[in-house]
Design a protein around this nucleic acid. Sequence first.
RNA 1: GCUCGGAUGGUGGAACUGGUAGACACGCAGGACUUAAAAUCCUGUUCGCCUUAAAGCGAGUGCGGGUUCGAUUCCCGCUCCGAGUACCA
Length: 927
Amino acid sequence: MDYHFRDIEQKWQKFWADNQTFKVDNTSEKPKYYVLDMFPYPSGAGLHVGHPLGYIASDIFARYKRLRGFHVLHPMGYDSFGLPAEQYAIQTGQHPAITTETNINRYREQLDNLGFSFDWSREVRTSEPSYYKWTQWIFMQLFEAYYDKQADRAMPIAHLVAHFERQGTDGIQAVCDEDVRQFTGDEWRSFSDEDRERELLKYRLAYLRESSVNWCAALGTVLANDEVVNGVSERGGYPVEQKKMLQWSMRITAYAERLLTGLDTIDWPEPLVEMQRNWIGKSIGASVRFDVAGHDAAIEVFTTRVDTIYGVSFVVLAPEHELVTQLTTAAQQAEIETYIERTGRKSERDRMADTKTVSGAFTGSYALHPLTGEQVPIWIADYVLAGYGTGAVMAVPSGDQRDYLFAKHFNLPIIPVTDAQVIDEEADARKEGKYINSGIINGLEYKEAVEVLIAKLEDIGHGKAKINYRMRDAIFGRQRYWGEPVPVYFKNGLPRLIAESELPLLLPEVDKYLPTETGEPPLARATNWKYQGQYEYEWSTMPGWAGSSWYWYRYMDAHNDKEFASKQAINYWKAVDLYIGGSEHATGHLLYSRFWNKFLKDMGFVVEEEPFKKLINQGMIQGRSNFVYRVLDEEGKGTNIFVSYGLRDQYTTAPIHVDVNIVSNDVLDIDKFKAWRPEYVDAAFILEDGKYICGTEVEKMSKSKYNVVNPDDIVANYGADTLRMYEMFLGPLEQSKPWNTNGISGVYNFLRKFWKLFHDAQGNFAVSDAEPTKAELKSLHKIIRKVEEDIERFSFNTSVSSFMICVNELTELKCNKRAILQELVIVLSPYAPHITEELWTLLGNAPGTISYASYPVFNPNYLVESEFEYPISFNGKMRMKLNMSLDMDIDEVEKTVLGNEEVQKFIDGKAVKKVIVVKGKIVNVVS
RNA sequence: GCUCGGAUGGUGGAACUGGUAGACACGCAGGACUUAAAAUCCUGUUCGCCUUAAAGCGAGUGCGGGUUCGAUUCCCGCUCCGAGUACCA
């Protein structure tokens, strides 16, 4: 019988589903292993061939781990809240839940086609009330918690309340808003309930705050920074403005340090770790206070170079700084106002593009240098950002290039601070040499100087060492419909949690998925949607990252309606051992998930500080577009003639995207092209070598470029096993690469060759029980070891090559021995699960048992060689080979080599200076 | 600009700690089978030179240097491509 992949694959997929082959319990004698994929958003376009890349890799890994005796959790689900379904709902009026359901069913079909070993009994969907009940529950925990700096962990807010009652704010070290009040215990107890609530909100980890947001009036929503491109919305290109809004936020900054240090404990790709580090943006420096001459005001600055403080020749405030109005003198008022007006009008894009032009305005006031008491002018300039540090800097032109340019432009003094500085052309930020012009630190070096200065500044009450983070608190709300409702209602303008027993707070029905006429979010449209019939609920919904920030725990216990997951399940599975997904989630999902995980751990709900022990990024699969070249007439109008790629230079042409599915190895199928669209029915072609060759280009895979390849089509033509192996064969997992179906026949042929090993010329299943030969055992054990090594380092592509080599060797040896083939079937099964299940059963094993078989034990004895064909190189250039026993020691090898006639020919009478022998590797004769 | 990643035949890629560069596969060329085509099988395939052929010679892993008996691999300097980030004091 030939290799009929269609029958085989359907048969086994059904078998696995019917027998729940991959369903696992939350307990086992075996060691556990948790393999997780980043779950998909089920879009209407369905899966293209790039999506399963990571799933195939993780599935191979999961199947391999099972063979190695691990109890493997390998689940899948859907991140099913999201904008596209909502956008579609706005256009069509169809409820997003319906679209989502349809899309999920399609995804499931496509996934099932590929033979993944997911435990589908644990499927989750973030948009299901049974799931988002727990997302809301976690939100409530965050609302009911604050971050205690002394304990360095989150604590129940009740703990804070008890402290306030006892001794007020005295002795409290908590992460909080800037405008918290100081009070005694007596004062606290005298506060009204509402005052207390108002104050507590400033400490809660989930809190409301006036935030500046990207408001897009046309879309009626707030956009994330990455949804704004060049000052307009990514979707639709509508104008976006900055608007102050009361928004739910998450105090992720409380965890900045732990998020940073945790990076050292996890095995993630270095670029990704680096991205998170940059995002957190820790800088160690000092905050310094400059008093203002003639005003009862002080300017707080943050600097990472307190050692250059004697080089300060001016102070710069952000145009938005709160002191600007107060410090502007009458004489400078017009200039300052003009400047503020001008920078305010500048779009985000202009401000970014225009980093070269120096601009600013003098306020007319002077700051007092905290150490020298000298007066330095106070300027405003848009190179100082209101949102970072204190929105004010001490300018040291000799040590900072931006300050340098500013000083040059406005003719301000540039004071060198070390004897090593070279500042004729530009600022010199090196920390070398000894300090000059620097009062108490003259003659000192960097490290010493910083210590002296910090001590002095603290002593005079003008500054202290300080650590600054670039990361901001995360906004946790969208003015959208298709998301988790926030379990909060408002009473006298203050947010209150609903009762835990009232969860889930269901997403209400609305007549339209648009904002109201007054600009309120869609949820404001819901009729009779009030808490206890009288209080308004929160109208924002949670952002896209809410549901994905904890989903790996739900898989552990997906149907629990008492807890988000049972203690027992969490204690068993603990954390994800291997996580595979795209690097585009580096600073979003992966950072928020680590944050929530740390919080859940602080509160005692989970056990691990880091949720994802090892992480692998799969590369993006790009599209590879094909083009035909339409010939243009003299007037530049398109004709119905198309010229082949190689001849297109002889004509004026316009390239047109052509569906890659009617092109094979860049040769156009002309009949299919004519049938593709009515306008091409009568198309004429100018061919080369009797063929129409298409041009190619690597682009994003998208419908509009006709370069989308659907895995279903590949499966129909070659089978899932071929697709799985081909995706791996394409190259290293982490690397981005264009999809090209051209090479797939190589993998397909490999599987057929593999199949043939088990069958005689007539196609009958035929294996022999004869003793395997040395050569056969060598071939087998080479692959046993190779696959082991490759999988452990996620080098799947090299394994596929090695399988091909192995099958080529066994074919050559005409090997059909059970002792060899049965083991080979196990080794190959993670990669090609269907064909191996079939052959496993044909070999007489119980159906379905291969998934839990034991991976063969590698025996190095089969690979031991007695002889080695030494490459003999002369001055580093390989010229010939010489077969020698591996028992020979270095001297013997050297003697044999020099005694060889052919070797002497290459030496050609020259004096041999040296002979280098590396045993079992190489001989190099130096002359 | 800064940070990170990358560059190897016509193509995808291999070479794991410095030791035979181009495994494996695609494509291409030639051949077998066939009335023919497809499919399949076999042979060749880094480039250049030389040769009827066998063989031989030279160059070669983005570019220029260096270390080494020996460098795709290590070091220094550059070029180009991709990703992230955006005046972060």
